[in-house]
Nucleic acid binder design. Structure first.
Lengths: 229, 229
DNA sequence: CGTTTCTTTGAGAGGGGTCAACATTCGTGG
DNA sequence: CCACGAATGTTGACCCCTCTCAAAGAAACG
């Protein structure tokens, strides 16, 4: 990794315009500490870091999308989270990454050295608090996702997924999913066929509209909320 | 809650003898800050706090066992974690508890006010770091559990559970499970019958021995490790 | 020692997985 | 801008793992 086009810049608080600047948690950390941030780009399906690899950097998506996942020895995959523009990922309290990360589509990230964040946290209590808060946010998502994976039906999982993506990346009532059906399945603990069937059923019921398999408009969010149990 | 026998004491670092004093993370926090810790007891199946309830206290199990869980509207339950003696639970970065907590059996906990921990973290960077590390530990467990819930078979889940409990509460090669089959099922995303059948099968294969349904001896940990994929 | 709760086991059903074929979309180069 | 090929998505048929429902057995408790 780290063998591509590389731009270095001293970061004030926010270098690049992000879709949701109001929620720029990364800037909240780097801003206080005057850290060096670097931009970096990955091509579709390129690995950003592997599972159990030393956690040298912390990342923020500038554009594109990232999947974090774990694998079983026979190749079964569980995606723990999708990271969209503005999201911070790869933040670890320990020495190594617990999940691998790959670019879903061509993606640009900003990154800072973990060591410098740790150092800043040792000096500035506000930075330390921000790191804790970000990890706690990841934990909240994981707890919600355990409920989905352990106890929801296929239709409920897909409904939950659609509402999550609608919230996170809908523009003008429409969302452009960056990930394929297999990624969605591996996120929801389903097969790609089951995801496809659920989406078709929702389409037939008029709950959503397609313009291409990955361009979706939700036409009845209330029905989806009811389905998500 | 908080309507039972109540003992207050000023905590040095460790008040009560814990089974695994080497891993006393709670003491690492309270020790530095000279916080007031209180002991409190709950009866079997008593609620400690509810989902979305204000997070006023942080807890450590002294004796007994606790389950943390989420419910769907129709009563389906996902247990996110079991808390055993020495474990800290109920630690939140935000204002409220994301999961409910109940005593599995009669349980005694030590508790400190969240506010005083926050305050200590604002003064002492080491305390802040400890809070972050504890939340990161919970996140690691949740990430592993998502893989289990999303991608493992029933037998793999039970094998993983047995190895986890063996690691956490085995004494002299034997473990005394505090929780019933339904709790195990709700932790593993299975029904209690499926858990029972998997345990019976492992028993028939000689992988484990019973002395009462909840007293289990692992006779072949390697086989379990192979099963857990 | 009786009662209640928990666990085991069986039989049958169903939701989601698997395998396969076809359709659509997208990227690429003509 | 279109044509082609590859990748992605949809749909169908069938199967199997786990769930559901039921009953008997074992353990815990007063």
């Amino acid at each position: 990794m780290l063998t591509q086009s590389l731009t270095t810049s001293t970061v004030a608080s926010r270098v690049s315009p992000l879709p949701y600047p109001a929620l720029d948690q990364f800037g909240a950390v780097t801003g206080h500490a005057g850290l060096i941030a670097t931009e970096f780009s990955y091509k579709k399906d390129e690995e950003i870091y592997g599972e159990d690899e030393p956690a040298e950097y912390v990342y923020q998506v500038i554009s594109g999308a990232v999947r974090s996942y774990k694998l079983l020895s026979d190749g079964r995959r569980q995606i723990g989270a999708f990271h969209l523009p503005g999201d911070v990922f790869g933040l670890e309290s320990g020495a190594s990454h617990r999940l691998a990360a790959e670019a879903i589509i061509d993606t640009t990230v900003r990154l800072v050295k973990r060591r410098s964040l740790e150092q800043a946290a040792g000096i500035d209590v506000k930075v330390a608090r921000n790191l804790w808060t970000m990890t706690a946010g990841d934990l909240r998502h994981a707890e919600d996702h355990m409920l989905l994976l352990g106890r929801k039906t296929a239709m409920e999982r897909v409904a939950t997924f659609l509402l999550e993506m609608d919230r996170r990346l809908a523009v003008a009532g429409m969302m452009a999913l960056p990930m394929c059906r297999r990624d969605i399945g591996d996120y929801l603990g389903l097969t790609l066929e089951t995801v496809s069937r659920a989406l078709s059923q929702l389409h037939a019921q008029g709950v959503l509209g397609f313009s291409g398999a990955r361009q979706i408009v939700l036409r009845n969010r209330q029905r989806l909320h009811n389905m998500d149990a």
